[in-house]
Amino acid sequence: MNSSVSALPLSTLNPANEALTLRLPSSLQLKHQLPLSTALSHQVDAHRQAIRAILDGKDSRLLVIVGPCSIHDPKSALEYAANLARVAHDVSDSMLLVMRAYVEKPRTTVGWKGLAYDPGLDGSDDMAAGLTLSRELMREMLQLGLPVATELLQPMAANYFDDLLSWVAIGARTTESQIHREMASGLGMPVGFKNGTDGGVGIACDAMRSAAHPHRHFGVDSQGHPAIIQTPGNPDTHLVLRGGHRGANYDRQSITQIHDDLTRLKIPARIMVDCSHANSGKDPLRQPQVFNDVLEQRLQGNRSLIGMMLESHLFEGCQPLGPSMRYGVSVTDGCLGWESTEQLLREAHRRLRLPA
Protein backbone atom coordinates (compact mmCIF):
# COMPACT_ATOMS: atom_id res chain seq x y z
CA MET A 1 0.00 0.00 0.00
CA ASN A 2 2.25 2.77 -1.25
CA SER A 3 0.07 4.94 -3.48
CA SER A 4 -1.02 8.37 -2.35
CA VAL A 5 -2.91 11.45 -3.40
CA SER A 6 -1.54 14.68 -1.97
CA ALA A 7 -3.53 17.56 -0.56
CA LEU A 8 -2.91 20.80 -2.42
CA PRO A 9 -2.45 24.19 -0.68
CA LEU A 10 -5.36 26.45 -1.60
CA SER A 11 -5.47 29.62 0.42
CA THR A 12 -5.27 31.22 3.81
CA LEU A 13 -8.66 32.43 5.03
CA ASN A 14 -9.35 35.38 7.29
CA PRO A 15 -5.95 36.13 8.89
CA ALA A 16 -7.72 37.07 12.11
CA ASN A 17 -8.60 33.44 12.83
CA GLU A 18 -5.48 31.89 11.27
CA ALA A 19 -7.52 29.25 9.42
CA LEU A 20 -5.79 27.40 6.59
CA THR A 21 -7.53 25.50 3.80
CA LEU A 22 -5.89 22.57 2.02
CA ARG A 23 -7.67 21.15 -0.99
CA LEU A 24 -8.21 17.38 -0.95
CA PRO A 25 -8.57 15.20 -4.04
CA SER A 26 -12.15 14.44 -4.95
CA SER A 27 -13.64 11.09 -4.09
CA LEU A 28 -13.86 10.37 -7.82
CA GLN A 29 -10.10 10.91 -8.18
CA LEU A 30 -9.32 8.51 -5.35
CA LYS A 31 -11.74 5.89 -6.67
CA HIS A 32 -10.10 6.11 -10.09
CA GLN A 33 -6.66 5.73 -8.51
CA LEU A 34 -7.76 2.79 -6.34
CA PRO A 35 -10.62 1.23 -8.30
CA LEU A 36 -12.82 -1.64 -7.22
CA SER A 37 -12.64 -4.55 -9.65
CA THR A 38 -15.81 -5.94 -11.17
CA ALA A 39 -15.42 -9.13 -9.15
CA LEU A 40 -15.03 -7.25 -5.86
CA SER A 41 -17.94 -4.96 -6.73
CA HIS A 42 -20.15 -8.03 -7.22
CA GLN A 43 -18.83 -9.41 -3.93
CA VAL A 44 -19.80 -6.25 -2.05
CA ASP A 45 -23.27 -6.34 -3.60
CA ALA A 46 -23.68 -10.00 -2.62
CA HIS A 47 -22.67 -9.25 0.97
CA ARG A 48 -25.12 -6.35 1.15
CA GLN A 49 -27.88 -8.60 -0.12
CA ALA A 50 -26.96 -11.26 2.46
CA ILE A 51 -27.18 -8.72 5.29
CA ARG A 52 -30.52 -7.48 3.98
CA ALA A 53 -31.78 -11.07 3.95
CA ILE A 54 -30.79 -11.44 7.62
CA LEU A 55 -32.56 -8.19 8.49
CA ASP A 56 -35.69 -9.33 6.65
CA GLY A 57 -35.73 -12.78 8.26
CA LYS A 58 -35.03 -14.57 4.99
CA ASP A 59 -31.63 -15.75 6.21
CA SER A 60 -31.52 -17.34 9.67
CA ARG A 61 -27.83 -16.69 10.28
CA LEU A 62 -26.55 -14.38 13.02
CA LEU A 63 -24.90 -11.16 11.81
CA VAL A 64 -21.69 -10.37 13.74
CA ILE A 65 -19.72 -7.14 13.24
CA VAL A 66 -16.31 -7.83 14.77
CA GLY A 67 -12.91 -6.18 14.77
CA PRO A 68 -10.77 -3.48 16.38
CA CYS A 69 -12.39 -0.52 18.11
CA SER A 70 -10.37 1.52 15.63
CA ILE A 71 -7.66 0.73 13.10
CA HIS A 72 -4.34 2.47 13.65
CA ASP A 73 -1.84 -0.02 12.18
CA PRO A 74 -2.55 -1.54 8.74
CA LYS A 75 -0.24 -4.51 9.32
CA SER A 76 -1.97 -5.72 12.48
CA ALA A 77 -5.40 -4.94 10.98
CA LEU A 78 -4.68 -7.16 7.97
CA GLU A 79 -3.32 -9.94 10.20
CA TYR A 80 -6.56 -9.74 12.18
CA ALA A 81 -8.62 -9.74 8.95
CA ALA A 82 -6.82 -12.86 7.71
CA ASN A 83 -7.64 -14.63 10.97
CA LEU A 84 -11.26 -13.53 10.74
CA ALA A 85 -11.59 -14.65 7.13
CA ARG A 86 -10.53 -18.16 8.11
CA VAL A 87 -13.11 -18.35 10.90
CA ALA A 88 -15.77 -16.70 8.75
CA HIS A 89 -15.44 -19.52 6.24
CA ASP A 90 -15.73 -22.19 8.93
CA VAL A 91 -18.87 -20.74 10.57
CA SER A 92 -20.58 -19.44 7.43
CA ASP A 93 -23.60 -21.71 7.74
CA SER A 94 -24.61 -20.17 11.10
CA MET A 95 -23.08 -16.67 11.14
CA LEU A 96 -22.15 -13.91 8.72
CA LEU A 97 -18.97 -12.31 10.07
CA VAL A 98 -18.26 -8.73 8.98
CA MET A 99 -14.89 -7.03 9.48
CA ARG A 100 -15.13 -3.92 11.61
CA ALA A 101 -12.86 -1.39 9.85
CA TYR A 102 -13.35 1.86 11.77
CA VAL A 103 -11.14 4.64 10.37
CA GLU A 104 -12.96 7.55 12.04
CA LYS A 105 -13.41 7.96 15.79
CA PRO A 106 -15.73 10.42 17.54
CA ARG A 107 -14.11 12.29 20.42
CA THR A 108 -15.90 13.68 23.46
CA THR A 109 -13.44 16.59 23.55
CA VAL A 110 -10.13 16.13 21.70
CA GLY A 111 -7.86 13.23 20.77
CA TRP A 112 -6.80 11.04 17.87
CA LYS A 113 -9.64 11.03 15.34
CA GLY A 114 -8.72 7.90 13.42
CA LEU A 115 -6.69 6.58 10.53
CA ALA A 116 -8.52 8.67 7.93
CA TYR A 117 -7.59 11.84 9.81
CA ASP A 118 -4.13 11.17 11.19
CA PRO A 119 -2.46 8.08 9.74
CA GLY A 120 0.90 9.14 11.18
CA LEU A 121 -0.52 9.04 14.74
CA ASP A 122 1.45 12.19 15.42
CA GLY A 123 -0.96 15.10 14.99
CA SER A 124 0.20 15.85 11.43
CA ASP A 125 -3.36 15.19 10.20
CA ASP A 126 -2.43 14.22 6.65
CA MET A 127 -6.02 13.48 5.64
CA ALA A 128 -5.19 12.96 1.97
CA ALA A 129 -2.84 10.14 2.97
CA GLY A 130 -5.38 8.91 5.53
CA LEU A 131 -8.18 8.61 3.00
CA THR A 132 -5.87 6.81 0.58
CA LEU A 133 -4.62 4.40 3.24
CA SER A 134 -8.16 3.72 4.48
CA ARG A 135 -9.38 2.87 1.00
CA GLU A 136 -6.35 0.66 0.28
CA LEU A 137 -6.83 -1.18 3.56
CA MET A 138 -10.53 -1.81 3.07
CA ARG A 139 -9.89 -3.02 -0.46
CA GLU A 140 -7.34 -5.54 0.82
CA MET A 141 -9.88 -6.80 3.36
CA LEU A 142 -12.36 -7.33 0.55
CA GLN A 143 -9.74 -9.35 -1.31
CA LEU A 144 -9.72 -11.73 1.67
CA GLY A 145 -13.42 -12.34 1.00
CA LEU A 146 -14.72 -10.38 4.01
CA PRO A 147 -17.61 -7.94 4.11
CA VAL A 148 -16.44 -4.61 5.52
CA ALA A 149 -18.20 -2.32 8.01
CA THR A 150 -17.41 1.11 9.40
CA GLU A 151 -18.93 4.00 11.30
CA LEU A 152 -19.49 7.02 9.08
CA LEU A 153 -18.76 10.12 11.11
CA GLN A 154 -17.91 12.84 8.57
CA PRO A 155 -20.38 12.79 5.64
CA MET A 156 -17.81 14.35 3.31
CA ALA A 157 -15.44 11.44 3.95
CA ALA A 158 -18.10 8.80 3.23
CA ASN A 159 -17.84 9.17 -0.55
CA TYR A 160 -14.20 8.03 -0.49
CA PHE A 161 -15.03 4.44 0.50
CA ASP A 162 -18.83 4.00 0.35
CA ASP A 163 -18.52 1.54 -2.55
CA LEU A 164 -16.44 -0.81 -0.36
CA LEU A 165 -18.88 -1.10 2.53
CA SER A 166 -21.52 -3.74 3.23
CA TRP A 167 -22.72 -2.32 6.57
CA VAL A 168 -22.54 1.09 8.23
CA ALA A 169 -23.03 2.33 11.79
CA ILE A 170 -24.24 5.76 12.82
CA GLY A 171 -22.92 6.41 16.31
CA ALA A 172 -24.73 7.35 19.49
CA ARG A 173 -23.60 10.98 19.28
CA THR A 174 -24.61 11.43 15.62
CA THR A 175 -27.86 9.42 15.46
CA GLU A 176 -29.73 12.63 16.36
CA SER A 177 -28.04 14.60 13.57
CA GLN A 178 -30.25 15.52 10.63
CA ILE A 179 -27.20 15.51 8.36
CA HIS A 180 -26.42 11.88 9.22
CA ARG A 181 -30.03 10.83 8.79
CA GLU A 182 -30.04 12.43 5.34
CA MET A 183 -26.77 10.70 4.49
CA ALA A 184 -28.13 7.32 5.63
CA SER A 185 -31.20 7.76 3.45
CA GLY A 186 -28.95 7.74 0.39
CA LEU A 187 -26.55 4.93 1.31
CA GLY A 188 -26.72 1.73 -0.71
CA MET A 189 -26.13 -0.61 2.22
CA PRO A 190 -27.84 -1.48 5.54
CA VAL A 191 -27.32 1.06 8.32
CA GLY A 192 -27.44 0.50 12.08
CA PHE A 193 -28.39 3.47 14.27
CA LYS A 194 -27.09 3.30 17.83
CA ASN A 195 -29.27 4.31 20.75
CA GLY A 196 -28.47 7.64 22.42
CA THR A 197 -25.84 7.93 25.12
CA ASP A 198 -28.61 8.00 27.76
CA GLY A 199 -29.56 4.45 26.72
CA GLY A 200 -32.98 5.42 25.37
CA VAL A 201 -34.05 4.33 21.88
CA GLY A 202 -36.39 7.20 20.98
CA ILE A 203 -33.73 9.15 19.08
CA ALA A 204 -32.68 6.07 17.10
CA CYS A 205 -36.31 5.33 16.26
CA ASP A 206 -36.71 8.86 14.92
CA ALA A 207 -33.51 8.40 12.92
CA MET A 208 -34.70 5.16 11.31
CA ARG A 209 -38.02 6.71 10.36
CA SER A 210 -36.27 9.74 8.88
CA ALA A 211 -33.70 7.70 6.95
CA ALA A 212 -36.43 5.55 5.41
CA HIS A 213 -37.79 8.60 3.57
CA PRO A 214 -36.36 10.40 0.52
CA HIS A 215 -34.54 13.65 1.17
CA ARG A 216 -33.05 16.57 -0.71
CA HIS A 217 -30.09 18.08 1.07
CA PHE A 218 -26.87 20.05 0.65
CA GLY A 219 -23.85 17.91 -0.14
CA VAL A 220 -20.77 17.39 -2.26
CA ASP A 221 -20.75 15.44 -5.53
CA SER A 222 -18.10 12.90 -6.57
CA GLN A 223 -16.02 15.67 -8.20
CA GLY A 224 -15.96 17.73 -5.01
CA HIS A 225 -18.47 20.39 -6.04
CA PRO A 226 -21.30 21.67 -3.82
CA ALA A 227 -24.49 19.96 -4.88
CA ILE A 228 -28.12 19.27 -4.10
CA ILE A 229 -28.29 15.56 -3.22
CA GLN A 230 -31.56 13.70 -3.75
CA THR A 231 -31.83 10.40 -1.86
CA PRO A 232 -34.31 7.54 -2.31
CA GLY A 233 -34.69 6.55 1.34
CA ASN A 234 -33.07 3.54 3.00
CA PRO A 235 -35.38 0.64 3.98
CA ASP A 236 -32.52 -1.37 5.49
CA THR A 237 -31.97 0.40 8.81
CA HIS A 238 -32.04 -1.20 12.23
CA LEU A 239 -31.36 -0.49 15.90
CA VAL A 240 -28.01 -1.06 17.62
CA LEU A 241 -28.17 -1.25 21.42
CA ARG A 242 -25.01 -0.11 23.19
CA GLY A 243 -26.36 0.71 26.66
CA GLY A 244 -26.12 4.19 28.14
CA HIS A 245 -25.54 6.32 31.21
CA ARG A 246 -28.18 4.32 33.08
CA GLY A 247 -26.49 1.01 32.35
CA ALA A 248 -26.92 -1.92 29.98
CA ASN A 249 -29.95 -2.48 27.74
CA TYR A 250 -29.40 -6.00 26.38
CA ASP A 251 -31.22 -7.94 29.13
CA ARG A 252 -34.47 -9.78 28.40
CA GLN A 253 -36.69 -7.14 29.97
CA SER A 254 -35.06 -4.33 28.00
CA ILE A 255 -35.19 -6.28 24.74
CA THR A 256 -38.89 -7.07 25.24
CA GLN A 257 -39.72 -3.43 25.93
CA ILE A 258 -37.70 -2.20 22.96
CA HIS A 259 -39.33 -4.78 20.69
CA ASP A 260 -42.76 -3.52 21.80
CA ASP A 261 -41.71 0.11 21.25
CA LEU A 262 -40.53 -0.63 17.70
CA THR A 263 -43.73 -2.54 16.90
CA ARG A 264 -45.88 0.28 18.27
CA LEU A 265 -44.07 2.76 16.03
CA LYS A 266 -44.42 0.39 13.03
CA ILE A 267 -40.64 0.08 12.73
CA PRO A 268 -39.34 -3.39 11.84
CA ALA A 269 -38.11 -5.05 15.05
CA ARG A 270 -34.52 -5.67 13.95
CA ILE A 271 -32.12 -5.39 16.88
CA MET A 272 -28.34 -5.69 17.06
CA VAL A 273 -26.55 -5.65 20.42
CA ASP A 274 -23.18 -3.94 20.78
CA CYS A 275 -21.45 -6.08 23.41
CA SER A 276 -19.05 -3.27 24.30
CA HIS A 277 -19.54 0.28 25.67
CA ALA A 278 -22.08 0.56 28.49
CA ASN A 279 -23.40 -2.95 27.85
CA SER A 280 -20.09 -4.36 29.11
CA GLY A 281 -19.52 -1.63 31.68
CA LYS A 282 -16.62 -0.53 29.45
CA ASP A 283 -14.79 -3.71 30.42
CA PRO A 284 -13.78 -5.46 27.17
CA LEU A 285 -13.36 -8.80 28.93
CA ARG A 286 -17.07 -8.81 29.80
CA GLN A 287 -18.08 -8.84 26.14
CA PRO A 288 -18.36 -12.66 26.00
CA GLN A 289 -20.82 -12.56 28.90
CA VAL A 290 -23.01 -10.08 27.00
CA PHE A 291 -22.64 -12.05 23.76
CA ASN A 292 -23.68 -15.32 25.38
CA ASP A 293 -26.65 -13.76 27.17
CA VAL A 294 -27.97 -12.35 23.88
CA LEU A 295 -27.21 -15.60 22.08
CA GLU A 296 -29.26 -17.49 24.67
CA GLN A 297 -32.19 -15.12 24.10
CA ARG A 298 -31.98 -15.80 20.39
CA LEU A 299 -31.75 -19.55 20.88
CA GLN A 300 -34.88 -19.34 23.01
CA GLY A 301 -36.74 -17.92 20.02
CA ASN A 302 -36.27 -14.15 19.95
CA ARG A 303 -35.78 -13.63 16.20
CA SER A 304 -35.75 -9.83 16.49
CA LEU A 305 -32.14 -10.21 17.73
CA ILE A 306 -30.50 -10.28 14.32
CA GLY A 307 -26.89 -9.62 15.28
CA MET A 308 -24.15 -8.54 17.62
CA MET A 309 -21.04 -6.37 17.59
CA LEU A 310 -17.70 -7.11 19.26
CA GLU A 311 -14.62 -4.92 19.76
CA SER A 312 -11.72 -7.28 19.25
CA HIS A 313 -8.05 -7.06 18.26
CA LEU A 314 -5.07 -9.40 18.12
CA PHE A 315 -4.38 -8.82 21.82
CA GLU A 316 -6.64 -7.68 24.64
CA GLY A 317 -6.78 -4.29 26.29
CA CYS A 318 -5.75 -0.85 25.05
CA GLN A 319 -2.76 1.46 25.15
CA PRO A 320 -2.02 5.17 24.76
CA LEU A 321 -0.41 6.55 21.64
CA GLY A 322 3.33 6.86 22.11
CA PRO A 323 6.79 6.17 20.69
CA SER A 324 6.81 2.48 21.66
CA MET A 325 3.47 0.74 21.30
CA ARG A 326 2.57 -2.94 21.53
CA TYR A 327 1.68 -4.63 18.26
CA GLY A 328 -1.98 -5.55 17.77
CA VAL A 329 -3.31 -3.64 20.79
CA SER A 330 -6.03 -0.99 20.46
CA VAL A 331 -5.21 2.70 20.92
CA THR A 332 -8.82 3.66 21.63
CA ASP A 333 -11.31 1.50 23.60
CA GLY A 334 -10.11 -1.74 25.10
CA CYS A 335 -10.66 -4.87 23.00
CA LEU A 336 -11.09 -8.58 23.49
CA GLY A 337 -8.05 -10.56 22.30
CA TRP A 338 -8.17 -12.74 19.19
CA GLU A 339 -7.87 -16.10 20.96
CA SER A 340 -10.89 -15.33 23.16
CA THR A 341 -12.78 -13.96 20.17
CA GLU A 342 -12.20 -17.06 18.07
CA GLN A 343 -13.22 -19.31 20.94
CA LEU A 344 -16.41 -17.28 21.45
CA LEU A 345 -17.35 -17.38 17.76
CA ARG A 346 -16.67 -21.09 17.33
CA GLU A 347 -18.66 -21.97 20.45
CA ALA A 348 -21.56 -19.81 19.22
CA HIS A 349 -21.37 -21.66 15.89
CA ARG A 350 -21.62 -24.96 17.72
CA ARG A 351 -24.64 -23.85 19.75
CA LEU A 352 -26.43 -22.34 16.75
CA ARG A 353 -26.12 -25.63 14.88
CA LEU A 354 -27.59 -27.76 17.66
CA PRO A 355 -31.09 -29.15 16.96
CA ALA A 356 -33.85 -26.91 18.33
Rank of each mutant, 00 (worst) to 15 (best):
S3Y: 04
P9A: 00
T21D: 03
L24R: 01
S26E: 03
Q29A: 07
T38K: 08
A46S: 13
H47E: 12
Q49G: 01
A50S: 15
A50Q: 15
G57I: 12
R61I: 04
V64K: 05
G67H: 01
D73L: 00
A77K: 00
L78C: 06
L78E: 08
A81Q: 01
L84N: 07
L84C: 05
A85N: 06
R86L: 13
D90M: 12
D90L: 15
V91F: 10
L96T: 09
R100K: 13
R100H: 05
A101Y: 02
A101I: 05
R107Y: 03
V110N: 10
G111T: 09
W112N: 06
G114I: 09
G120K: 06
G120E: 08
G120Y: 04
D122T: 10
S124G: 14
S124N: 12
M127I: 14
T132I: 03
L133D: 01
L133H: 04
E136D: 04
R139E: 12
V148G: 00
T150H: 05
L152F: 13
Q154W: 07
P155Q: 12
M156K: 09
W167E: 01
A172K: 07
T174Q: 03
R181N: 03
E182M: 05
V191T: 09
F193V: 02
G199R: 03
G202H: 15
I203A: 12
C205M: 15
C205L: 03
D206Y: 04
R209E: 00
A211Y: 02
P214E: 11
H217R: 12
D221H: 01
D221E: 12
Q223Y: 10
H225S: 14
Q230H: 14
T231I: 11
P232C: 07
N234W: 09
D236P: 05
L239N: 08
G247E: 11
T256R: 13
I258S: 03
L265V: 10
R270V: 06
M272G: 02
V273H: 12
C275P: 06
N279L: 01
R286I: 05
Q287R: 12
F291N: 07
L295T: 14
I306T: 10
S312L: 00
S312R: 08
H313P: 06
R326W: 04
G334R: 09
S340Y: 14
L345W: 05
R346N: 14
R346E: 11
E347F: 05
